[in-house]
Computed example of a mutant assay.
Amino acid sequence: MLSMQRNDPRQYDDLAGEWWRPGGPFELLHWLAEARAALIPPAGAPGRILVDAGCGGGLLAPHVRGKGYRHIGVDLRRTGLERAVPRGMTAVNGDVTALPLADRSADVVVAGEILEHVTDLSGTVAELCRVLRPGGLVVLDTVNDTRLSRFITVTLGERLGIAPVGLHDPALFVPPRRLVTEFTRHGVELEIRGVRPSLPGLFRWLVLGRAAGGRIVPSISAAILYQGIGRRHAG
């Protein structure tokens, strides 16, 4: 029985000590963060800004540290930001539906494993695009809205420990077509590709109980997890 409603953000306060524990419940998020970072090119010039929307405990930070950005992490929960700051990020307490940042201030906007948690998807996408400069890059990953994703992420995933119990509300999962439409409204042409965890990594983590060192690999199907990447039109 859940002590809170599904998708209650206060659950992250209870899980705050797990963000960086090897082999812990956020192990898969570490793999996703590394895969997300692989889509982000080097800054190329001083002063470029990367906004990490819904940054949690700062899992992206080690993977972009050498790319030359000023890394700004925005999150609703201060407990996560406290874990993010030591990783070299600038922490901002705020909601992704109302980012406390200036228009067109970011060269890269990242939304990793956050869109399946927001109750206002249209408003969130509008905010991500508002802070993105013309020509800027958006990188994201999220959970598809399919029967298979609901079974894997919630029914089976919570039973096996892939996802903490109650962290997801499947009613908020995001169909790729809708996400592409939302970004197109704001001048960002989003490309989608399916991804999945490596099977050896999953086995080491879930069966052997080890810090698995797994990774995220391309998948022929986007039915469960998918990445998105796009640029805002110049001008």
Rank of each mutant, 00 (worst) to 15 (best):
D145G: 04
V195R: 15
A106R: 14
A126I: 01
G209L: 01
V108L: 10
E34W: 01
P9D: 07
T153K: 01
V217K: 08
D107E: 10
C55M: 05
M89P: 10
T97C: 14
A35W: 03
I229V: 15
T90W: 05
M4P: 00
G228Q: 06
S221D: 02
A16F: 09
L167F: 12
A37T: 08
R133K: 14
L199G: 03
P170R: 00
G44N: 04
K67W: 07
D107G: 04
P86E: 08
G17F: 06
F183N: 02
G54P: 12
V125L: 06
P86Q: 04
Y226P: 01
P22E: 10
F183T: 00
R130S: 08
L206D: 13
S219I: 08
R159N: 01
T142Q: 12
A43N: 05
S3C: 02
R210E: 09
R6E: 02
L202Y: 09
D14T: 09
A111T: 10
E18V: 06
Y69T: 02
E82G: 00
G187T: 08
G73I: 09
T97R: 15
P86K: 05
P46Q: 11
G56M: 04
R133L: 12
E27I: 12
F203V: 15
H233F: 09
T146D: 14
P9M: 01
G68Q: 12
I192Y: 09
V118Q: 09
P46V: 08
P134G: 12
A61L: 14
A33C: 06
L60D: 04
P197N: 07
L15Y: 15
R177E: 15
T184G: 15
G209Q: 04
R177I: 01
L190W: 01
E116D: 13
V217E: 14
I49W: 05
D169N: 13
R70W: 06
E18P: 09
S149H: 04
R87G: 14
A37Q: 02
I192W: 09
E191S: 12
D75A: 07
Y226N: 13
R193S: 15
L101G: 13
V110C: 15
P22D: 14
V64Y: 12
G230W: 03
R177Y: 00
V174H: 13
P46Y: 06
T181P: 00
V64A: 04
I229Y: 00
L132A: 10
G54Y: 03
I192G: 03
D75T: 01
G73K: 03
W20V: 04
A111L: 10
D120I: 10
E158W: 04
V96G: 11
T119F: 00
L128E: 08
A91T: 11
P218Q: 07
A35D: 13
C129Y: 02
R77Y: 00
W20R: 14
P9R: 02
L99Y: 01
T155C: 05
I224Q: 03
R130G: 11
V118M: 07
A33N: 05
R48T: 04
L81A: 04
W19C: 12
D145N: 15
A222M: 02
R83Y: 03
L50G: 07
R150L: 05
R147K: 10
A16H: 07
R65I: 02
D52H: 10
L101V: 09
F151V: 12
H117P: 03
G66P: 00
P134M: 08
R65N: 00
R133W: 02
V110G: 13
G230H: 04
G23W: 13
G112F: 04
H63L: 00
I49V: 15
I40T: 05
Q11I: 11
V139I: 13
H71Y: 11
R104M: 02
